[in-house]
Write a protein that binds this DNA or RNA. Structure first.
Lengths: 188, 188
DNA sequence: GTCTATATACTGATAGAC
DNA sequence: GTCTATCAGTATATAGAC
């Protein structure tokens, strides 16, 4: 990576973090450039389409990082039930304990921009499809039929998103805990 | 209701609608006063604490309306499984078809402000607790033990929130459909 | 109680020197 | 590629006439 790639990357990383915490409209470009350490004037050099383009790339980065985390988590145990339950337990700790440094990936940006920017919406949609696919892949490897595995991927991702949202907002682990307990019944 | 109550109510109603669609930071006070038809200068007369106070009251209104909708929906059928499934089917139509006029209640505001305003966060938490309680009440009436009913209320609300969020973002009914199909297994 | 005008700060975005 | 200065627009919030 050259200098160019470096500043570009730092901007996307800062944007990814801040959009997750404060949402799209709640995060200004000044704050992003300041936090990234990248020179402010160069933002429009790397992202000629401005904030929207930066948000799309930030969502892509967030999606890649979260997908990687899901995949690594699921690899730790062979049994899908135990693997998924363990992953959810980790999320529960993060949602409640990490306080100021944590947010629900993608969700805030998705809700704010679905009606306002179709390209950003599509980036968020792609993120959710990646998450679903990561769960489905684990289930296929363990013998679930393809179609059933994909449906369960959608279902598991939705349940985790909702429970994460409610756990985060109410500062309680209960929603994520209850979803984790439901996994064995779901995969039976 | 006198004139005062009327303007106040119109402001809260417009705020409730717009915050749901565009989030907290994505909605300006100018837009709210314009859409409400209430005189702009009077906003700070009714809400001395400004936008934050207006948002709290808007969340309370949204919570009351949604809770009412859940309760009325659940009353339509005696069997809790069928009642909840029917309710989710209605939500699925709304999330995908209503397009520009629909949003996920409370969620956008909750995600944006949880780290920025404790009073707004508490209003969102109260909203989720109302939703959970509405489901739990239906289950208690139908013979579920109190503790189990309350856990299922949290779980059902979380599942619906997540599936609504993903359905809304991906413009697909699948997540909500799959959650609906899961209800019988859940309540077995 | 209503409404206008405005203060102040910040937003996204741009131009141009270096 | 970097950085500064700055644009026009809008944000929340306020002061004061009526």
């Amino acid at each position: 990576m050259n200098k160019k790639g470096n500043s570009r990357t730092k901007l996307i990383q800062a944007a990814s973090r801040l959009f997750q915490l404060q949402g799209y409209h709640g995060t200004g470009l000044n704050q992003i450039t300041k936090e990234s350490g990248a020179p402010k004037g160069s933002l429009y050099y790397y992202f000629p389409n401005g904030k929207e383009q930066l948000a799309i790339e930030a969502v892509h980065l967030t999606a890649a990082k979260v997908t990687d985390r899901i995949e690594r988590g699921l690899e730790k145990q062979d049994d899908p039930v135990e693997a998924i339950q363990h992953l959810i337990k980790d999320l529960a700790d993060q949602a409640v304990k990490d306080g100021e440094t944590s947010g629900v990936p993608v969700a805030a940006v998705a809700l704010e921009t679905t009606h306002a920017s179709e390209p950003i919406r599509q980036a968020c949609q792609a993120a959710y499809e990646q998450f679903q696919h990561a769960f489905a892949k684990k289930l296929k490897v363990n013998g679930y039929p393809e179609k059933r595995a994909e449906e369960l991927g959608i279902l598991i991702n939705s349940m985790i998103e909702g429970a994460f949202l409610v756990s985060f907002t109410t500062k309680s682990k209960n929603p994520l805990r209850l979803v984790a307990e439901q996994i064995p019944v779901l995969l039976k």
